[in-house]
């Protein structure tokens, strides 16, 4: 059995293009998901009357159904919905890339929301009281006091979640989008070099994700300061609930 290295090397530019999209998608979904997720987590933590329930339903829903199904939902339905909103009433072709960005951001936000929510609960209650006693507004309390601490504490889990996100971007395959995996699959099927390209893809993912895991481990070890009552153990136990 021979391994056609040349074919892989020749295809590298196309593969890199795909990889670029994978990275783009990951970054957009991570940043958007974290912002949205943090807002949702705070909403739920504060117990805002209607919004907190809505967030709970949303997060539960998003975490209970497969990503592929969510991709199908958004891919087919978002253009339809937008079409209803416009006077013409026709469905607007959003472009698969844009749909993917929105879908992944919304999907990941549910997972980030749970991570941040657990972090908010793990922060020593005294921090909230100290801030309130000083008269800080809720906005200031969360922005200047609580969230910075939560982000430090949850950094390893967030990195892990982002690595999972990066792996999940491969699923845009079902929408025929050309991410890193999609690019490899296209060429593999076109040139009948399945072994070469799928193996290469696997190895590259392995390298990237391993490096990411290392980063996560570094974060875990580098916890700069200690809160007076050592809440880290409790946080870590809570975080066993990471999404696969």
């Amino acid at each position: 059995m021979s391994f056609d290295f040349a074919a892989v090397i020749n295809a590298t530019p196309y593969l890199l293009q795909g990889l670029l999209f994978s990275v783009e998608l990951t970054l957009v979904a991570m940043i958007g998901g974290m912002v949205l997720g943090t807002l949702m987590a705070i909403t739920r933590h504060m117990g805002v009357p209607v919004a907190a329930e809505a967030v709970r339903v949303y997060v539960t829903l998003m975490r209970s159904i497969p990503l592929i199904l969510v991709l199908f939902w958004f891919f087919f339905l978002v253009p339809l919905l937008l079409g209803h909103l416009t006077p013409a009433g026709r469905s607007i072709p959003l472009g698969p890339k844009f749909t993917a960005f929105i879908t992944f951001t919304l999907f990941e936000s549910a997972y980030y929301a749970e991570i941040v929510r657990a972090g908010l609960k793990a922060i020593d209650k005294g921090q909230y009281e100290g801030a309130k006693a000083l008269g800080l507004s809720n906005t200031t309390m969360y922005w200047s006091v609580v969230v910075p601490q939560v982000l430090r504490v949850t950094a390893p889990i967030i990195v892990s979640q982002t690595i999972i996100l990066f792996q999940d971007t491969a699923l845009v395959y079902v929408l025929s989008l050309t991410d890193f995996f999609g690019a490899a699959a296209k060429i593999a099927q076109r040139d009948s070099k399945l072994v070469e390209f799928y193996s290469t893809v696997a190895v590259v993912y392995l390298l990237i994700c391993s490096m990411g895991s290392e980063l996560s481990e570094r974060f875990r070890k580098k916890q700069g300061y200690r809160s007076p009552r050592g809440r880290f153990e409790r946080t870590r136990r809570m975080f066993g609930l990471a999404r696969p």
């Binding site: 690595i163 792996q167 392995l206």
Partner: peptide
């Protein structure tokens, strides 16, 4: 190995 390769890729392999 098995954690760091996407599930989709593993299934294809």
């Amino acid at each position: 190995v098995f954690r760091n390769v996407p599930l989709l890729v593993q299934v294809f392999l």
